[in-house]
Design a protein around this nucleic acid. Structure first.
Length: 254
DNA sequence: ATGTCACCTGGTAGGTGA
């Protein structure tokens, strides 16, 4: 089973690239972030024509997430249960005996900002909800744009980024707290090329210079760990003419 | 190089968020 996550930075703009990627890579499940579409504008017919059953949860201008699967997803949850939120950032569903959660974690803007406070609250809310979610579903995948670079090796210039947003000790502690629930960073279960990133700033020729961060992740539960066959970042879509600033991350689970 | 992109409001430019 192949699962993938991609922050598309506007599905209205990126729909052709998503359809191309689905056709080429044939994932069984895909989660999307930053669709930036209200629910009435979600392109469900085009995705159904491509062979996927979409679930979606969006809002105007910002955020917005979707869950695409070849088999129907059931027991759909939108946003973190029992966490009051006016932003559309999370969608979960069950596909067979697999629980899939797709998240667009808050960016946080700057460590001294209100948005950072919200990011920490959101991460704590996610952590608390995941505790019960993992009790109910032993086979669970949490994936999406975490907006956290877990370690220095996930940052092209860790000295310059030290203490900056995505790299603060507080964010990294939150990431480790998720792992402590019994989750594993699928990408790090395998030897990977050094300087592997999932996001490159649109500015400064960052992609050409390979100046990026690894902030998009796929975490798998204890029960799935031994079944993960591969995990990689597909840089190819970042080379498109009008790319998202993120690349898809892909995991293979037997 | 605070150098791009997407989307909004409101209008043919400026602000916000990433």
């Amino acid at each position: 089973m192949k699962l993938a996550t991609w922050n598309v930075n506007s599905l209205a703009v990126r729909l052709p690239q998503v359809l191309d990627w689905l056709a080429a890579q044939q994932p069984d499940v895909m989660v999307l972030q930053e669709t930036k579409l209200t629910d009435d504008k979600f392109p469900h017919a085009a995705l159904a024509d491509a062979g996927y059953q979409p679930q979606w949860f969006g809002q105007k201008t910002y955020n917005g997430v979707a869950l695409l699967s070849r088999a129907p997803a059931t027991d759909i949850a939108k946003n973190i249960v029992d966490f009051e939120d006016d932003q559309a950032r999370l969608i979960a569903g069950s596909i067979g005996d697999l629980r899939v959660i797709g998240g667009y974690f808050p960016n946080g803007q700057a460590p001294d900002s209100d948005k950072f406070v919200y990011k920490m609250r959101w991460l704590t809310g996610l952590h608390d909800w995941l505790k019960t979610e993992l009790q109910r579903h032993t086979r669970l995948v949490l994936m999406g744009d975490f907006n956290i670079a877990p370690e220095d090796r996930d940052v092209y210039d860790p000295v310059a980024w030290a203490g900056q947003i995505h790299c603060t000790p507080e964010e990294r502690a939150q990431f480790r707290a998720l792992l402590a629930l019994g989750l594993h960073d699928a990408f790090r279960l395998f030897e990977q090329p050094p300087k592997s990133w999932s996001w490159w700033d649109y500015r400064n020729l960052a992609f050409r210079k390979n100046q990026g961060l690894r902030i998009d992740h796929i975490l798998v539960s204890d029960a799935l760990r031994a079944h993960v066959q591969a995990c990689s970042i597909d840089k190819a879509p970042r080379k498109n003419e009008r790319p998202s600033d993120h690349a898809p991350v892909v995991v293979e689970i037997d």
